[in-house]
């Protein structure tokens, strides 16, 4: 029976053609990203290695980078604890106004970050809606950084988690329920593990978005300085040669964390 064999081979070749074409197209976007980042890093390493080494020994640079990583982690944790249940409800239930809620969740992605920062300031400021009752101080303090990061990055986690829960077949849950598992147990043992890759990817994107946030944070909390604020500060007060080594260090730091997290995500 040679016929199907040939058909298979033809479709295989066609498939490969698509792959080759897509790889060629994909090369452009990859080249665009790599060129921009590599240019920054290589200019630094080739032209001013001493300045870079000096920066790696500057404790205030590491303070800022670790503060960024830490506050972004807190924002991600809050987004996870409160966003995952919401994502589950959105994935499983249909109700009036659901589209509106989904739109609202996406809103922080589209509004300009300075606007987000000012809006947060009016809520969490000294006389703000929440700020006036709160025991925590938000302006120029760590909680302020966290709420700004949370606001701009939570949508990434919620959307990814919702897709994850949507990809889990409800019939699997029904089987578990019919075998006597409680709703809570079903969620923990069936739904959550099956959606976990989406959840992890969402958490990584959420953290990444939080680390990169500058516009909203700088409005509500200029001090203590996170890495993007420090880079901006060094640029304004001392120029490109002072800010670039910090940028390069942040890029390398994020790259390392990203590669580790992606490897972890793949293993699961």
């Amino acid at each position: 029976m040679p016929e199907p064999d040939i058909k298979d081979r033809i479709s295989l070749i066609k498939h490969e053609r698509v792959l080759i074409l897509f790889s060629l197209i994909g090369f452009f976007i990859l080249a665009f990203i790599i060129l921009t980042l590599a240019n920054t890093i290589l200019t630094q390493v080739l032209l001013d290695l001493d300045g870079f080494i000096k920066t790696t020994r500057d404790p205030s640079v590491w303070d800022a980078i670790f503060l960024s990583a830490y506050t972004a982690f807190l924002a991600t944790a809050i987004a996870f604890v409160s966003g995952v249940p919401l994502a589950y409800v959105l994935a499983r239930e249909n109700f009036i106004g659901k589209g509106l809620i989904e739109g609202v969740i996406d809103l922080p992605i589209v509004i300009p970050h300075t606007v987000a920062g000012i809006a947060l300031l009016t809520v969490f400021g000294r006389h703000g809606l929440i700020g006036q009752f709160s025991l925590l101080r938000f302006v120029d303090a760590v909680p302020g950084i966290v709420v700004a990061m949370l606001f701009v990055s939570a949508p990434f986690l919620i959307n990814s988690a919702r897709e994850g829960f949507e990809s889990v077949d409800p019939r699997l849950e029904n089987v578990a329920r019919s075998l006597g598992a409680s709703g809570w147990r079903t969620f923990c043992r069936i739904t959550f593990p099956l959606a976990s890759r989406h959840l992890l990817t969402g958490a990584i994107m959420c953290w990444a978005r939080a680390v990169s946030e500058f516009g909203a944070v700088v409005v509500i909390a200029y001090h203590p300085m996170i890495a993007p604020t420090l880079i901006y500060e060094r640029y304004i007060s001392a120029g490109l040669s002072a800010s670039r080594p910090v940028s390069v260090l942040l890029i390398i730091f994020c790259l390392v964390i990203f590669v580790i997290l992606r490897i972890l995500a793949r293993k699961r």
Binding site: S60, D63, A64, R137, V139, D140, A141, V218, Y222, H223, P224, M225, L230, Y232, E233, R234, I236, S237
Partner: peptide
């Protein structure tokens, strides 16, 4: 350095 200004944020606010 700007990151070392260390403002007492109860009393002063600094922006760029």
């Amino acid at each position: 350095g700007s990151e070392d200004i260390n403002p007492n944020t109860d009393r002063v606010m600094i922006r760029s």
